[in-house]
Simulated scan of single mutants.
Amino acid sequence: MQTRTDNLSVSGHKFKVKSYWLDQVADFGKTVDYPVMIICPGGGFTFHSQREEEPIALRFNSLGLHVVVLEYKLIDDEPVFPLALQEMGKTIDWVKQQANLRHIDKSKIILTGFSAGGQVVAAYNGIGTDPKLRHTYSLEQYDDDFAAVILGYPVIDMTVKNSFPIDEKVMYQISTDKTFWQTQAYLNEHSKPTFIWQTRTDELVSVSNSLMYVDKMDQLGLPVEYHLFGSGIHGLALGTYVTKKPGKDKYLNAWSAEWINLAFNWLEMMGYLE
């Protein structure tokens, strides 16, 4: 495996992508083009959680996918959106440009987001697949088609009461454009199949977020698989000792940790791992 960090830019703004590229296996006797997963970690738009970066990346590497971690825009002196959306478009385009060098199957790019990163991915699965909105937010310049989405305890609708973000001021720091406040509203016939999971006891992001997303996918007749686990805190990541915070056993949850095997089975069932 080869790892590296690259700097990309959109609209004069620089951002980083961390790559975990699989090596070819000589024993196969032929070259293999692998799927690519692009991960957006959580962190409440104030940081990028490393617990949802390399540990997740290496786990999916072991399942036969290249992985790229997108360190999207955070809250600062200008809103997160629409710049974070453009960063995603640029990243997908950048990945495709390396198809021959890295042996990438361009038809099998999976976007994966956790918590706040889930909002970035959810927004892209709606706004980024709508022809009119793509023009509105300057996305048509990118070769950014993708195959599927995986969401873990995602922020979907920022207007939900008693759910992140609680403070309206933070909502405006994330986006002054209310289009990005309710990402489920922009799912459309072009949106991609989605695997989504959350825990019923998530104390930060109300479970109604994922439920609204799944309901809209179902209304549109789009492929969706949803797993609502009965227990577990927000931000479980892998739910194992690999991503447990030192001395905090609440980050362990053997049952919810099955999400990654379920996601792998779903990817296989959908034909993304052939």
Rank of each mutant, 00 (worst) to 15 (best):
M1V: 15
M1T: 14
R4M: 13
L8Q: 12
F15S: 02
S19Q: 10
Y20L: 09
W21Y: 11
L22K: 06
L22F: 06
D33S: 14
Y34L: 13
M37Y: 05
M37E: 03
I39N: 02
I39M: 06
F45T: 03
T46M: 07
R51D: 01
A57F: 00
L58K: 11
S62L: 11
L63G: 04
V69C: 06
E71I: 02
K73C: 02
D76V: 00
E78A: 13
P82L: 05
M88E: 05
T91D: 02
W94A: 10
A99I: 10
N100E: 15
N100W: 12
L101V: 13
R102S: 06
D105Y: 05
D105E: 11
K106N: 06
S107I: 01
S107T: 02
I109V: 13
L111Y: 06
G113D: 03
G118A: 12
Y124T: 03
T129E: 15
P131S: 15
T136E: 15
Y137H: 07
Y137Q: 01
Y137T: 03
Q141G: 11
Q141V: 14
D144N: 10
A147C: 11
L151R: 06
L151S: 03
Y153W: 14
M158P: 01
M158W: 09
S163F: 12
F164C: 00
D167W: 11
M171P: 00
I174L: 07
I174N: 08
T176H: 08
W181A: 06
Q182F: 10
S191F: 12
W197T: 15
T199M: 14
R200Q: 14
L204T: 11
L211S: 14
V214F: 13
Q219K: 13
G221I: 08
L222V: 08
L222N: 10
G230H: 09
G235Y: 09
G235D: 02
A237E: 03
L238A: 05
N253F: 05
N261E: 04
N261P: 04
N261C: 04
M270Q: 14
G271T: 09
L273C: 03
